[in-house]
Nucleic acid binder design. Structure first.
Length: 126
RNA sequence: UAAGUAUUUCGCCUUAUCGCUGUUUUAGUAAUAAAAUGGAGGAAAGUCCGAACACCAUAGUGCAACAUAGUGGUUAAUGGCCACCAGUCGUGAGGCUAGGAAAAGUGCAACAGAAAGUAUGUACAGGUAAUGCUGUAGUGAAACCAGGUAAACUCUAUGUGGUGCAAUGUCAUGUAAACUAAUGCUUGAGCGUGCACGCGCGAUGUUAGAGGGUAGGCAGCUAAAGUGUAUUGGUAACAAUGCACGUAGAUAAAUGAUAAGGGCUUUUUCUUUAUAGAAAGAGUACAGAAUUCGGCUUAUAGAUAUACUUCAUCA
RNA sequence: GGCCUCGUAGUUCAACUGGAUAGAAUAUCAGAUUUCGGCUCUGAGGGUUGGAGGUUCGAACCCUCUCGAGGUCA
């Protein structure tokens, strides 16, 4: 399987996002926060994921877009680890809660940490 | 050389690996896969002007409201741009200017001052038969009969119908033509985005409240008052003609990430008579399309070319 | 993407429509009172009226540009 992140894997439905934020659980690994919810899709993908950077902390569009690109990249390269350990379908939303512009390495390590926490919690519940 | 003034152009590059997205072709029932080929800016920004385009009477009359304001030109259009005149700032190259009307009318002018508009009188001097009759001083931004202020109301001239791609059309999904209050049913409530008239619509109505449902796809959506260049006309803005090019289309929102190398700028150290060379470090801006154009304004590391100026300095 | 509104001491508001040291409360600081602290009383500091430019004799107020904050729409 390849390290892709195309349209069908993006979280787009406004309904599902609302549901995710009201019913979903979260783990945080500074400067990231991962919100997740177990659900089902019509498409054959393991998860749908969205990324978000608040306008409150980053006023310039350039900064927001840059951080989102980095976050998507980190997710793309590290999602295999998650997919190999879950059986059902999930919706994810990754939020950037820091206030400083990050480097790629910081984001990548935080992403790994967040997903490890998520997997630990998930398997514990089972 | 230095310090400036005005304008022009550019605003990082290469390779490897892994990706995102539009279009086309091939394979496939389809999901999708493979290949080829496009994929941010000079300001994409602010939304300050002007248009295109769409809908509402293919847009009407009057009033109100708003905008503009030297003269001429330019343009699809403008409050933009160009030329000239005037004023003003600068030694100068040049910069800036909402730059019509105060004898149509209304208003405003604190403090100071005799007096700020229905005028009136202090000191000194002059003058007269006599008197603010005349000049100067003093107050103030403005003071002998007039002025100032219109980015105060106003007048004049010109212009503007309103709303905006979340317009608008269409397909799909779903619910509540229900509830409460007011008002109205041809003697007409209200709607058509300021008011009146007019025209059109109008009863399973309209307005308000509290709620229920959907919040997805497609079209609009990118070839355009287009860009580059040459010639001609014009002081110029700009126009005409020829040739070449065919130029992003996302929607929780693509155009990227990582690594290596190289540019450019600069600091320190070393070598060298010097030019220069080597090593190490730092920096490499402002900023991200969202219907599309023409302007304006604002942000911007660093580089770049042309023309010009100077009480400068040197030859 | 479009449209609209608002910026005054650290904070909450004034300043009567252009007129002179921009005022009040609260907070802060100092002094008095108290054995000490609080309450109370007295006094002081604190503002280039978000920023820049213009109109005017004079601008918080009028105009232009800009920065920031908030609201609204199918």
């Amino acid at each position: 399987m390849k390290c892709t992140y195309n349209k069908s894997e993006k979280l787009k439905s406004e309904k599902l996002i609302t549901k995710l934020f009201t019913e979903g659980k979260s783990v945080s690994a500074y400067p990231l926060r991962l919100v997740y919810l177990e659900t089902t899709f019509t498409e054959a993908v393991s998860a749908k994921t969205g990324v978000s950077v608040p306008k409150r902390n980053f006023k310039k569009a350039v900064d927001r877009i840059r951080i989102k690109r980095v976050m998507r990249e980190a997710y793309r390269l590290n999602k295999q680890n998650v997919f190999n350990n879950i059986t059902t379908q999930f919706a994810f939303m990754i939020l950037y809660i820091g206030k400083e512009k990050p480097s790629y390495n910081q984001v990548e390590s935080a992403t790994k940490k967040a997903f490890n926490k998520f997997l630990a919690k998930h398997t514990e519940n089972k």
